[in-house]
Computed example of a mutant assay.
Amino acid sequence: MLDRAISPIRRRLDRAGILLSGACAVHCLLSIVLVSGLGIGGEFFLSPDIHRIGLVFATLIAAVAIGWGALRHRMAAPFVVAMTGLTFMGGALAVPHGYKEAILTIIGVALVSLGHILNLRHSHSAACMERCGD
Results as ranks from 00 to 15, higher is better:
R4S: 14
A5Y: 06
S7V: 07
S7C: 02
I9T: 12
R10F: 13
R12E: 07
R12T: 04
R12D: 07
D14Q: 10
R15M: 12
R15V: 06
R15H: 09
G17P: 02
G17H: 01
I18E: 07
I18Q: 05
A23F: 15
A23K: 03
A25E: 08
V26M: 08
V26T: 06
V26A: 09
V26K: 09
V26L: 15
H27T: 07
C28E: 11
L29G: 14
L29P: 05
L29M: 08
L30P: 00
L30R: 00
S31Y: 00
I32V: 01
I32E: 05
V33S: 11
V33F: 11
V33D: 10
L34E: 11
V35N: 00
V35Q: 00
S36K: 13
L38F: 13
L38S: 08
G39Q: 12
G39P: 03
I40Q: 02
G41M: 01
F45T: 09
F45L: 14
F45V: 05
L46P: 06
S47M: 07
P48L: 09
P48G: 14
D49Q: 11
I50G: 07
I50E: 11
H51L: 11
R52F: 12
I53H: 12
L55D: 10
V56H: 03
V56G: 02
V56N: 02
F57S: 07
F57M: 07
A58Q: 01
I61A: 04
I61P: 02
A63R: 04
V64F: 15
V64T: 14
A65Y: 02
I66W: 04
W68K: 09
W68E: 13
W68C: 14
G69I: 01
L71E: 08
L71S: 13
L71H: 15
R72M: 03
H73W: 15
R74N: 01
A76Y: 06
A76S: 11
P78V: 07
V80K: 00
V81D: 01
A82P: 07
A82K: 06
T87S: 15
F88D: 00
F88H: 04
M89L: 08
G90V: 06
G90Q: 04
G91E: 01
G91K: 01
G91Y: 01
A92F: 03
A92W: 05
L93F: 03
L93N: 00
L93A: 04
A94Y: 10
A94M: 09
P96F: 12
G98K: 00
G98N: 05
Y99R: 15
A102I: 03
I103W: 05
T105E: 09
T105R: 13
T105V: 05
I106Q: 13
I107R: 03
V109F: 15
V109A: 14
A110Y: 01
V112T: 15
S113H: 05
S113T: 06
S113Y: 02
H116W: 00
I117P: 05
L118D: 02
N119F: 08
N119Y: 11
N119W: 12
L120T: 00
R121H: 14
R121F: 04
R121L: 06
S123E: 15
S123L: 08
H124G: 09
S125E: 14
S125F: 07
A127M: 05
A127L: 06
C128E: 11
M129H: 14
M129K: 14
E130K: 14
E130G: 12
R131V: 08
C132F: 06
D134I: 06
